[in-house]
Design a protein around this nucleic acid. Structure first.
Lengths: 133, 133
DNA sequence: CCGTATCCTTGCAGATACTG
DNA sequence: CAGTATCTGCAAGGATACGG
């Protein structure tokens, strides 16, 4: 290993996580996307059925919920348990991995949520400056 | 404060953070969005100029970078330092609040990044099942 | 060098209707 | 109940050109 450009590569790592070619990019988008986060949040409270989830997630359509659930299931964050009864009953729940991801996501969300007064204040300052100019 | 429906409200809090009407929703989208996370990541390494940032953030257009930077600045996560020299020089850096947000975002990203082998394995299992049916 | 303004394309998401 | 299929709009995003 060469040592001359080592720190350059380390620096690259931090933002390349988001680079287009990065493998984790897709999963991250499922998690942080419009409905992914919401779904993980709801499921973080416990196992839930499709329509139950649909009612809890404000504004999601059947299509989007279905799509989101499939993506999260494919990534191994959500487990789908279908009982072949009639009428059908399907339960969704977080996998252990999904729970860990959801927890870290919640940490971020709750931090931002807790600092919204700062954000709102910053916005007012920004808008005031903009308006003045 | 009433105590009868307290836990219901606590539960609501967890997913309502993502609800449409929620104030923090906008900021969260700036942070977790396509270019917001990337920009925060790059800036987490230190102060940077516009074109420097543009070169580092893989695939971003001038328009999107500009837009992203404005959104983050307005939310008080990024500070813009313009020197009225010629040619102009503008530096962007994280505010203390921005640094805290970036750190929590990084925690999430790096966790997912570190578990991508699990995710990839889950995907193969999922696709194999799908293909079989 | 640091952006904004404009046009134009594409892909995501909503609505609706239908199936097992 | 638990979804899939299709159509359509609209807005995010890319390319390009120009301004301070």
């Amino acid at each position: 290993m060469s040592t001359t450009h080592e720190d350059t590569e380390e620096q690259n790592l931090a933002y390349n996580v988001f680079a287009r070619a990065c493998v984790s990019r897709g999963t991250l988008e499922h998690v942080t996307g419009r409905w992914g986060g919401l779904t993980l949040g709801a499921l973080h409270e416990g196992s839930m059925r499709f329509n139950e989830l649909r009612r809890r997630v404000d504004g999601v359509s059947e299509k989007m919920l279905s799509q989101t659930l499939h993506a999260l299931e494919r990534d191994g964050l959500v487990h789908r348990e279908a009982q072949p009864t009639n009428p059908p009953r399907v339960d969704y729940e977080l996998t252990p991995l999904g729970r860990e991801v959801a927890e870290r996501l919640m940490t971020l969300i709750q931090f931002v949520e807790g600092r919204m007064d700062d954000v709102l204040a910053a916005r007012e300052r920004y808008d005031a400056r903009r308006g003045a100019r």
